[in-house]
């Protein structure tokens, strides 16, 4: 019995490591390589391929997990809430709660579900806001945030994370990870020759909106994290979900 759980744990740890490597190391590495080696449009395509590639392991893992109906529906409901919340705040384009919802889902159901939730929220909400060349980037950025939320704050026993570190993570994560990825994507799609000046210009001009977005994430986490996690935990404990 214990041997079996050990093996399971090992397997899980291995998968986790693999996911971390793909999401956090491989992707930025190849993007960096792309920046260094190619200075032409080729590198836009390459980075796009990397993004899609990085989603593949998550998708395959998700497919192979054989989730039960309840787990599936609860996850879908959380994603739908993220999308609806983004739609509800459509008047304030940067002040959006979607990242907070992705992080909360990651905390409640673990990093892999967090990634799926983040990426799916970005994808589905773009059916309202319009798909574009930005879609994969947004998916990747939100996915990574959901993933990190799960890695940093997901507890097996479902205990609630401390608010301060959570908000710091949410704020910095949105500002740096989301902001960086999406701003870089703007440069990459519109410009063919990528220079540090252009990137800096994009980051500088994107800083204001990113700060607003980060502030929004912090506020939403501050207010929503506790009640939402409480509710999700109740459901999780009651039906033994996503473990």
């Amino acid at each position: 019995m214990s041997e079996k759980t050990n093996k399971e744990d090992k397997k899980k740890a291995y998968r986790l490591a693999l996911s971390v490597i793909v999401a956090l190391i491989l992707v930025p590495a190849v993007i960096a390589l792309g920046v260094a080696v190619w200075d032409d449009r080729k590198f836009y395509i390459v980075s796009l391929i990397i993004i899609i590639m990085s989603m593949v392991p998550f998708a395959l893992r998700f497919e192979s997990r054989k989730l039960r109906a309840r787990e599936l529906v609860v996850l879908a409901a959380m994603i739908a809430i993220g999308v609806a919340a983004r739609a509800a705040f459509y008047m304030t384009p940067q002040f959006k709660p979607a990242v907070a919802v992705a992080i909360i889902t990651g905390i409640a159901f673990g990093c892999e579900s967090g990634f799926i939730a983040g990426a799916m929220i970005a994808f589905v909400s773009n059916f309202i806001f319009g798909q574009g060349s930005w879609t994969p980037w947004q998916m990747e950025a939100m996915g990574i945030l959901g993933f990190l939320g799960g890695i940093l704050f997901h507890k097996r026993d479902g205990s609630l994370p401390k608010l301060l570190p959570l908000c710091v993570f949410g704020g910095l994560g949105t500002l740096i990870i989301y902001g960086l990825i999406v701003d870089t994507s703007t440069v990459i799609t519109t410009q063919s020759v990528i220079t540090w000046e252009k990137l800096t210009a994009a980051y500088v001009s994107g800083f204001g909106p990113n700060i607003v977005h980060a502030a929004a994430t912090v506020i939403f986490l501050l207010i929503l994290a506790k009640p939402l996690l409480g509710k999700l935990n109740r459901v999780r404990v009651k039906y033994g979900l996503l473990e």
Binding site: A59, F62, E63, A76, I116, V124
Partner: peptide, 20 residues
């Protein structure tokens, strides 16, 4: 290709109008 995710996607599309 990814039937479970496709189902989740369909469910999300079904829930969003209701939630809004």
């Amino acid at each position: 290709i990814i039937p479970t995710l496709s189902l989740v996607f369909s469910m999300v599309l079904r829930f969003v109008p209701g939630i809004i």
